[in-house]
């Protein structure tokens, strides 16, 4: 008798659980059937009249029915919770394409970018980064670099003279002099910075531009070691192996002096308008440091030897980005600068 009662209760309760439409209805079923005063509890009260064997059997059935119903309830409850969560998540739709608040990043000047990149490269090779003033003495800019007064080499650099007799430095080379005094041999240094030449400005000429001076002084510095260093530098700058050639170039502070050319990156050698059909593009002057310059830097040229080079950062930037007018760089025009 109890068996059937239990069975029909379990069956009807299962139906009601499945039929419950809300979490509240489900709770009502739970209270009515499984609650302390619920139907199951009622049924269990009738067990006192049964034989011990029957009681044990019915007890087991009762427990089983309770466990089953509780599981069904829980599962149904979870369905409601899941649905509620899903509904909330769905309602929380946002437009992911809306622009984010806060400042839009600006950008660094392309000359800054290339300069920082090279500073990082050199620093990683143990090279010190030095600075020198933009207003230099005539002595540091010329005399100490083996360009005495009335030397025709002074014509190679149209100079801005200042009323006080100083100059706006025409190259970063004076930092060689400062570097030798500061670091002493052996040394490895670079000095990037702003330089000035008294020239009319047009698409390919500027009176204000940027150079990076480099210098190494050591015991076994030779043309071969200079070449090694230059190739290392150029591989990094261009991101690939470049073919270089050295040819004679005159700069009073080096002996021998060179112009370093790279094989034209546009045509690869046969000749094109960019390389003026020569297959080569002049990239940087370099050379072994003139013994007079070492001496003026307090370094004994019989014991030490050095190389130096000057890299035109402005030119490099123009080559890298294909900039056809040098005047953009100092125009302050954001339509240009925001491209970098």
């Amino acid at each position: 008798m109890l068996d059937q009662q239990l069975e029909s209760l379990a069956a009807s309760t299962r139906d009601r659980i499945l039929a419950a439409a809300t979490s509240d209805q489900l709770e009502a079923v739970r209270v009515e059937v499984l609650g302390r005063k619920g139907t199951l509890a009622e049924i269990s009260k009738g067990m006192g009249k049964l034989t011990p064997d029957e009681r044990k059997r019915i007890g087991q059935l009762l427990n089983a029915a309770k466990t089953n119903l509780e599981a069904a309830l829980e599962s149904r409850q979870k369905q409601f919770a899941d649905a509620a969560l899903n509904a909330r998540l769905e309602a929380e739709w946002i437009d992911v394409t809306l622009p984010a608040p806060g400042p839009r990043p600006g950008s660094l000047h392309p000359l800054t970018q290339i300069q920082q990149e090279l500073e990082d490269l050199f620093t990683s090779m143990g090279v010190a980064v030095l600075d020198g003033p933009e207003v230099e003495s005539e002595y540091n800019n010329f005399d100490a670099l083996n360009i005495p007064p009335d030397h025709p080499a002074r014509d190679m650099q149209d100079t801005f003279w200042l009323a006080d007799g100083n100059v706006l430095r025409t190259h970063t080379s004076p930092v060689q002099v400062r570097g030798m005094a500061k670091l002493g041999p052996p040394l490895l240094m670079i000095a990037p910075g702003r330089v000035f030449r008294n020239e009319e400005v047009d698409a390919s000429h500027e009176h204000t531009f940027y150079q990076l001076e480099g210098m190494m002084v050591g015991r076994d510095v030779s043309i071969a070691t200079m070449l090694y260093f230059m190739k290392l530098l150029l591989r990094h700058i261009f991101g690939r192996e470049v073919t270089v050639r050295l040819r004679p170039g005159f700069f009073p502070f080096v002996e021998p002096g060179f112009e370093l050319d790279i094989q034209c990156l546009i045509c690869g050698g046969p000749g094109c308008p960019v390389c003026k059909h020569s297959g080569w593009v002049e990239l940087m002057p370099c050379g072994l440091v003139h013994p007079n310059v070492l001496r003026m830097g307090g370094i004994d040229p019989d014991e030490w030897s050095g190389f130096a080079f000057g890299l035109g950062l402005t030119r490099l930037v123009m080559m890298r980005y294909g900039i056809d007018d040098i005047r953009h760089l100092q125009s302050g025009d954001l339509r240009f600068l925001r491209q970098f």
Partner: peptide, 17 residues
Amino acid sequence: YATIDPVAPLVPTHPPA
């Protein structure tokens, strides 16, 4: 100068100033 092959210089390594 094309007959001169690059040679790595011997340099004492230390962090730069």
